[in-house]
Write a protein that binds this DNA or RNA. Structure first.
Length: 578
RNA sequence: CGGGGCGUGGCGCAGUCUGGUAGCGCACCUGCUUUGGGAGCAGGGUGUCGGAGGUUCAAAUCCUCUCGCCCCGACCA
């Protein structure tokens, strides 16, 4: 591609609207432009990157035995009503009516359509398993789109759906996708980690997220430094205490009598800890929740943080929210900030750490009143103990007990075991060997394509711009012809260009009549992995100059061996990835 | 949806408090010079000041409404 016949509109300045680095760089490097909140045009160079990711995804999905198709973006309400998600899916589902006043939506995901297709077309166990996938534009009307392609409303996603005869088959399909995803992100040249995750609203029993590791990532993940355990923060288990509850109750601290303490206007753990001069680990935090309409008290140690996902899963509730002030007053008899477990009439669940036998400090269930020397069993009862808190860096690995490490990442892929949730709701049956009707067991698997490009930039950039991994770079090589008006420079650059094009290399020839500085800066900004400089200075000695975007130093090679050298470097860069 | 901020040429911004008919840098166009890390000189074009209504002799500036965007939070993957 010739720069003068192409379109890479770069910005010299940082656009004011972009907060995160990948968003800034994608705008500055002329990869994307915003149309409206959360909706972007992929400019030519950006599209090249996107297509490269798509092709890797496609190759690996095919290799894993999945079959590509393409489903509609506009879908009728009936299907969503059938699965029950028309009412469950919130405002994220963009709904509208057509000219016949029929309700429809823009698809945020395709479980309904694929299940509908499969139930109509597949009748026999002989036709199973199948795994269909597509690379398609999704729409989710996000409350607050942000960070460019990282969290847009309209975005390109690869989604796949597997159908198996039984749980065991579904597990095999899941494993195959796990392998495929690992290959995909490896081939994209990214540092990533697969972590255990909560399956959330999509439902199902088991899931993994694929996280591109980056300091600026929105997600926190926990990994073991000894074994291969890794999980996202909301999923990461805290190892249950070794001892049985009865033993844990055996005294660690001498029992002292329960006592009330006046604590005027002291409402937070921090204030209370300072006021009483005790560490926050001596306090019990009592949080009043409403779980599917029922008030529940959840107890965690003062220095711990409640994990609402764990609480929700433990209670088996579909909606768990912090109780509004009225409910808190009704449950505790006190205004917010003074809740405690002593004398509570609602169900009480507690984190394992509360089993500790010590003289706790708790809320007094009276305005401006806390209690000290509160003993479990003597002064308050707990209905059940569970792992309800967020893991801390001090906790051991829940699998092997080794030390754990916290890091940050960007979720680019997510694989789920769905079970029979959709096949049951939408009657996706098949006949088994015995002629009996059985439910298909499903899995679903997503990759955010645009987000993968953004994550790659977030992980690979410097002060000058993007440093694309070669497999997903818009071009593999850029040739800078520094003085286009000098016949020797122009001709050498042209010859090198057509040689490389002939060898099937993705090469951009910067043939603009621009000053060298402009070309160098644009090449750095766009992040093309290999830069070949053709200039008067080098040509005097019969040399051209090669520099890798991820290295500081350049080196010179003979003009005659330029093509050979470049092809060797490309090979080396790809080899370093596999 | 709650809180905060911002809409002025393609981009980044000043001007708004204190009303007087729009400016700076970059970019863009023409010419000459220049050409290894975002050139110099000379000349030039560029704006419904987000929109609507109002106050006023006069509105980018004051008032009302409205639209859009960004950030924080809640939410979601």
């Amino acid at each position: 591609m010739r720069y003068t016949k192409y379109f890479i509109p770069t910005y010299r300045e940082i656009p004011a609207e972009a907060e995160v680095i990948s968003h800034q760089l994608m705008l500055r490097a002329g990869l994307i432009r915003k149309l409206t909140a959360g909706i972007y045009t992929y400019l030519p160079a950006g599209l090249r990157s996107i297509r490269k990711v798509e092709n890797i995804v496609r190759e690996e999905m095919n290799r894993a035995g999945a079959i590509e198709l393409l489903m509609p973006a506009v879908q009728p309400a009936e299907l969503w009503q059938e699965s029950g998600r028309w009412d469950l899916y919130g405002k994220e589902l963009l709904r509208f009516r057509d000219r016949h006043n029929r309700e429809a939506c823009l698809a945020p995901t395709h479980e309904e359509v694929i299940t509908d297709l499969v139930r109509k077309e597949i009748r026999s166990y002989k036709q199973l398993p199948v795994n269909f996938y597509q690379i398609q534009t999704k729409f989710r009307d996000e409350i607050r789109p942000r960070f460019g392609l990282m969290r847009g409303r309209e975005f390109i996603m690869k989604d796949a759906y597997s159908f198996d005869v039984d749980e065991e088959g579904a597990n095999r399909s899941y494993e195959a996708m796990y392998e495929a995803y690992s290959r995909i992100f490896t081939r994209c040249g990214l540092k990533f980690r697969a972590v255990e995750a909560d399956s959330g609203a999509i439902g199902g029993s088991y899931s993994h997220e694929f996280m591109v590791l980056a300091e600026t990532g929105e997600d926190q993940l926990v990994s073991c430094m000894k074994c291969n355990y890794a999980a996202n923060l909301e999923k990461a288990e805290v190892k249950a205490p070794q001892a049985a509850p009865a033993e844990a109750l055996s005294s660690r601290e001498d029992e002292k009598p329960l006592q009330e303490v006046e604590t005027p206007d002291i409402k937070t753990i921090g204030q209370l800890s300072d006021f009483l001069s005790v560490g926050p680990e001596m306090l019990i935090k009592t949080l009043i929740y409403v779980a599917d309409g029922q008030p529940v008290a959840a107890l965690v140690r003062g220095d711990h943080e409640i994990n609402e996902t764990k609480l929700k899963n433990y209670l088996g509730a579909s909606i768990v929210e912090l109780a509004p002030p009225e409910i808190i007053e009704e449950a505790t008899g006190a205004p917010t900030g003074f809740a405690g477990p002593v004398g509570l009439k609602v169900r009480v669940v507690a984190d394992y750490a509360i089993q500790d036998a010590r003289n706790w400090v708790t809320g007094g269930n009276k305005a401006d009143m806390h209690l000290i020397n509160v003993r479990l069993g003597r002064d308050f009862q707990v209905d059940s103990f569970a792992d309800l808190r967020v893991i801390t860096p001090q906790d051991p690995c829940p699998r092997c007990g080794g030390p754990i490490h916290f890091s940050r990442g960007i979720e680019v892929g997510h694989i789920f075991k769905l079970g029979t949730k959709y096949s049951k709701a939408m009657k996706a049956h098949y006949l088994d060997e015995n002629g009996e009707e059985r439910l298909m067991v499903m899995g679903c698997y997503g990759i955010g394509v645009g987000r993968t490009v953004a994550a790659a930039i977030e992980q690979n950039h410097d002060e000058y711009g993007i440093i694309f991994p070669i497999p997903i770079a818009p071009f593999e090589v850029v040739i800078l012809a520094l003085q286009m008006h000098e016949p020797e420079v122009r001709e050498t650059a042209e010859r090198l260009y057509s040689d490389l094009v002939g060898k099937g290399v993705d090469v951009l020839l910067d043939d603009r009549d621009e000053r060298p500085g402009v070309k160098f800066n644009d090449a750095d900004l766009v992040g093309i992995p290999i830069r070949v400089t053709v200039g008067q200075k080098g040509l005097k000695n019969g040399k051209i100059e090669i520099r890798l975007r991820n290295e500081k130093e350049s080196y010179q090679v003979d003009v005659s061996s330029g093509t050979f050298e470049v092809i060797g470097i490309i090979q080396k860069l790809y080899d370093s990835i596999h």
